[in-house]
Design a protein around this nucleic acid. Sequence first.
DNA 1: ATCTCGATAGTCT
DNA 2: GACTATCGAGATC
Length: 214
Amino acid sequence: LPRDFFRQNTLSVAQALLGCLLIRDEPDGCLIGRIAETEAYTQVDPACHAFRGQTARNATMFGPPGHAYIYFTYGMHHCFNAVTAEAGQGEAVLIRAVEPLTGWERMAARRGLTEAGKRGFDLKTASEAERIRRARALCGGPGKLCQAFGLDRTLNGTDLTTGSHLWLAAGDTVPPEAICATPRIGITLATDRLWRFTRRGDPFTSRPGDTRQT
DNA sequence: ATCTCGATAGTCT
DNA sequence: GACTATCGAGATC
């Protein structure tokens, strides 16, 4: 996706990112996930890291659009965002869940889900429901997908428009009527804003069963 | 299916 | 010193 894609209204970008592909290039091949859930964070939003101005931590949010804002939280998790809107605005879209498409084994290894006794990831014998359960265990949450893709603070600020290392690509186009808008998760401020977006009926979200419409 | 709680460290007041 | 854009285990319904 080109820089102009990200340089738009943050709410629009958050919805346009549904169905797009998150790709990380590694020596063993690409890791690929299809975006299933996003959240918008804007300038006028008390829940946004940038709301109270620029600091060392959130500096990337104030830079040019199309870069990765990756931060560490709760003492053990990372969250991956794409910076949006014009430089200086401090807006971004949090990627909350992806459907793992390519690289299941490496993702499972990074998530610590491959050892004996921890439920195997042999997909050949897995039912559809089991496949979904395992996919959600890999990438069904912002912290999980960062761990699965090996995203951490060393990648904060990465340009997402180069088509190498770490980037986003067009995938399914999701029509407006297939997009659900719900309250954002894990925040205490501005919970009245319906800025969490999912594809209607998509099972690969951080929580199942959200069917409310825009 | 839904809840409560603890882990754990960086950031900001 | 309080708070956190989370996760997983264990309890409970």
